[in-house]
Design a protein around this nucleic acid. Structure first.
Lengths: 128, 128
DNA sequence: GTATCACCTGGAGTCGACTCCAAGTCAAGG
DNA sequence: CCTTGACTTGGAGTCGACTCCAGGTGATAC
């Protein structure tokens, strides 16, 4: 799979994919004879994972650390687990905040809805 | 209430509070005789609202537009409602993505947990 | 064989959102 | 009176995360 296809499939630009590789967020992708990246299954899965984590706001630096540990094999399992647990907690906190905001938005929207209805009623009554 | 108190209370720096005022995200706060900001009830409520919206990731630009409309009175109610509805949708989408990521993290953590346990068992068995 | 096109590289630029700084003002304490 | 400390301003700097660009290569289409 060429970079453009991966880019298309996951809705991220080729520039971003190359950038992620440059900074070590995804492992170097194998190239064909003419030096062009050829994404295979394992690469695709990495991209998918990173895309998912980034979409939830996990910082690049943390993810680089994590994938670095993955490369170092089994002896880093504890460290990896700790990272994931920490990020899980932060994510849960952010989601709680967002839920609170969502509730407030819903409430405000409802209030505005009523305001609009009241106004319409006034217009009907006054024949305006 | 002076800026430091507001800053303390909402966990945002004085610099951020002044910055928000500069860019029109919060209305100019009244000053005492010597030119120092004195936050009153209405200011506090605005700060709280902005803090809440920002914590959920609503972009500053959108919030500036919204508070601008609020200043223009009742005739902007529809427009305000539309903004809130739009942002509400985006927020819901982001939360869905985050929930997906959270589930994956939970799953991975569990897998790591098992890996650690398996390892410990091995150590016990081999007497390592 | 040359034009087109997708790819490559390293480096620079952009963007949103702060964050920091120098230089200045004022009120209160010693 | 002078120092201290919290405030003021406008402007510059930083940070994370891309995003763009110039200049170059190689395969395919005409």
């Amino acid at each position: 799979m060429k970079i453009a296809e991966v880019s298309e499939r996951y809705g991220m630009s080729s520039d971003t994919l190359r950038y992620y590789e440059r900074i070590g967020l995804i492992q170097p992708v194998n190239r064909n004879v003419s030096g062009i990246r050829d994404y295979v299954d394992v690469d695709i899965r990495r991209v998918e994972f990173i895309k998912c984590m980034r979409s939830a706001g996990l910082p690049i630096e943390v993810l680089i650390e994590y994938v670095g540990l993955v490369q170092q094999g089994d002896r880093t399992i504890e460290a990896r687990k700790d990272i994931l647990i920490g990020q899980r907690e932060l994510l849960a906190v952010r989601m709680k905040e967002m839920q609170k905001t969502l509730d407030i938005l819903d409430h405000k929207i409802e209030v505005y809805e009523n305001a609009v209805l009241t106004k319409e009623k006034e217009i009907i009554q006054t024949g305006e």
